[in-house]
């Protein structure tokens, strides 16, 4: 098992190295002169040169990449052009805010989606199933910001039951108030993620329902309900929980539009500001951070899956 984990962690690190190279190359090689974009078109060539020297952009690419990665290792992410603050001080609080939103959203999304998937599987081919699967996936392909706009229109403007901003105005909002503000954006994320998670759950449950061992259980004389609980859900849901972890990229990606619509000072909004200001130190690290989050969740999913599945667990241990 340990060997498996070490190997998986190694692969994840390799992936992250490739991610960092891609990010670095995109910002360095793609056409578009950073100095020109930052200082404006009218600045003198000397000004560009001084600026580039100051920021270290005159050094060879390998050196620049080394400096960036060295900084990432030691926690020094450089200084944001826009905020004139260390990147970590800009990114840290914003990421914490986004994590709050993501956690509230996941607490809402995971159980509802899993239950939806189970309900669809148990009613396979019936109306409930069609509605949940077709409806769920149709909702999932509508962009988050469209959901945001529609939700704000309905609950914030027409009925005025929910705050339209995700962030309370008070100085020290209590937990309930914070969650209350996060509810509408979480619902928007729910619409986008419900379809995927419930579909994965449904497929897992159906596979288990159709399995020979389920037949064995029923023919042993277990009632259908007991058989489903003991033999189907156990086999179907444990991997599903692991699979949810792989949906994290969608969640992180979705945060950007959601934070913009609900005006939430999180990671996504910060990243968007960095894009508009062409604040590359901030942008590089922000994008790399999303890569780290996604890869970590995938790693957790992989390991969880192996731990939960005796077949893999055994192959791994041997």
């Amino acid at each position: 098992m340990l060997r498996f984990i070490v190997k998986r962690v190694g692969l994840s690190i390799l992936t992250l190295v490739i991610v960092s190279v891609i990010i670095f190359l995109m910002t360095s090689i793609l056409p578009g002169d950073i100095a020109k974009q930052t200082l404006g078109r009218d600045a003198s060539p000397e000004a560009y040169e001084i600026w580039n020297k100051e920021k270290g952009f005159d050094k060879p690419l390998v050196v620049q990449y080394g400096r960036w990665m060295g900084g990432v290792m030691t926690g020094d992410l450089g200084t944001s052009f826009k905020f004139a603050l260390p990147v970590s001080e800009v990114l840290g609080p914003a990421a914490a805010k986004s994590a709050q939103l993501a956690i509230v959203a996941l607490i809402l999304i995971a159980p509802i989606s899993i239950l939806g998937g189970i309900a669809a599987a148990m009613n396979r081919g019936k109306k409930v199933d069609r509605m949940l699967t077709v409806g769920g996936l149709s909702a999932a392909v509508i962009p988050e910001f469209v959901w945001g706009v529609i939700l704000i229109l309905i609950f914030g403007v027409v009925f005025r039951v929910f705050p339209v901003s995700a962030f309370p105005n008070e100085e020290n909002p209590n937990l309930i108030n914070s969650v209350y503000h996060l509810l509408l954006p979480s619902i928007a994320l729910l619409f986008v993620l419900f379809g995927y998670i419930s579909r994965i759950t449904r497929a897992g449950v159906i596979e288990a329902l159709d399995s020979d061992y389920m037949r064995t259980a029923v023919l042993k004389g277990l009632s259908r309900k007991t058989a489903v609980f003991r033999h189907v859900l156990r086999n179907a849901l444990l991997p599903t929980i692991a699979v949810i972890a792989t949906q994290v990229p969608y969640l992180v990606g979705g945060l950007i539009a959601i934070e913009r619509v609900f005006n939430y000072p999180g990671f996504g909004n910060t990243l968007l500001k960095a894009v508009i200001a062409r604040d590359f130190p901030l942008l590089q690290s922000a994008v790399f951070l999303t890569g780290v989050v996604v890869v970590c969740f995938q790693l957790i999913a992989d390991i969880l899956f192996a731990v939960l599945n005796p077949r893999i667990r055994q192959r791994v241990t041997e």
């Binding site: 992936t15 992250l16 490739i18 991610v19 891609i22 990010i23 995109m26 910002t27 793609l30 056409p31 578009g32 002169d33 020109k36 974009q37 990229p249 969608y250 992180v252 990606g253 950007i256 539009a257 990243l271 968007l272 960095a274 894009v275 062409r278 590359f280 942008l283 994008v287 999303t290 890569g291 996604v294 890869v295 995938q298």
Partner: peptide, 19 residues
Amino acid sequence: AISAIPVIIIALLAVAAIG
């Protein structure tokens, strides 16, 4: 590695880089 970064974010990065 490419799919470890959400689509929207990698697109934003590219737009920022190109200007």
